[in-house]
Amino acid sequence: MLEIKEIWKTFNPGTVNEKQALRGVSLTLKDGDFVTVIGGNGAGKSTMLNAVAGTWTVDAGSISIGGTDVTHLPEFKRAKFIGRVFQDPMLGTAPSMQIVENLALASRRGQRRGLGWGVTKEEKASYQKMLRNLDLGLENRLTSKVGLLSGGQRQALTLLMASLQKPKLLLLDEHTAALDPKTAAKVLELSDRIVEENHLTTMMVTHNMKDAIVHGNRLIMLYNGRIVIDVSGEEKKRLTVPQLLELFSKVSGSDEADDKLLLS
């Protein structure tokens, strides 16, 4: 479903701020794979997801989604294949537009937008049903501006939006990190549900090792712009946090201080 081949990305090349954020990352995901991505601050997790989403083009390497080479496609064209939820709840929705308008925008992801109505009557009814399923009390606030919602409500809405037009790939970048623990757990649970119901191929970045182990069928760890750990199947199911830490210090050759950093 997703094939990343040897991608490289350097930020601010030729300046004092030069940063090699991705150094030859390769990753192949099968249809329905749910991979969790961990790694310390600055390891390149967000950069990898941005590379796939097309925020900018990579310096070298190639990316294909569902058999289509997207390496040189601009972000808005790749959006056809990709659903995204960002770390910052502000990023995923249009705050000055209504809840239904946001959903309607998302349901047309990857389609030509013409002079038909932006939101149809039938749509409104079906969105109401979906929002009732979310159980956030949003079903009676269809015409409220999204800017009035809480961070958790927005992330849940963004998740729903990402799945409306079934994406080939769902990218979740620490999408619960800005929420309080209780809300985070709820949004995470919702993510699981949506991924399962729609059988979505998913990449989820998290800083929580336990979440990384519990969710999904595969786990990768990035370090210094490279994938250093890649476990899946039975091996992943049996994984524990201490084992993961040990594994990490072995591959990175780092000491305990780094492990602490990783856990933070």
């Binding site: 959006a79 929705t93 249009a94 537009m97 308008e101 925008l105 937008r113 109505w117 932006g118």
Partner: peptide, 28 residues
């Protein structure tokens, strides 16, 4: 009428949150 159409909505989304607009496949 125009700002109620799909195209008009994509224009409003661009002004409201260009990041989101692109993620929804809008050529901002």
């Amino acid at each position: 009428w125009f700002f109620g159409t799909e195209l008009g909505c994509s224009l409003r989304a661009t002004g409201s949150n260009p990041n989101m607009a692109r993620a929804q496949g809008i050529n901002t």
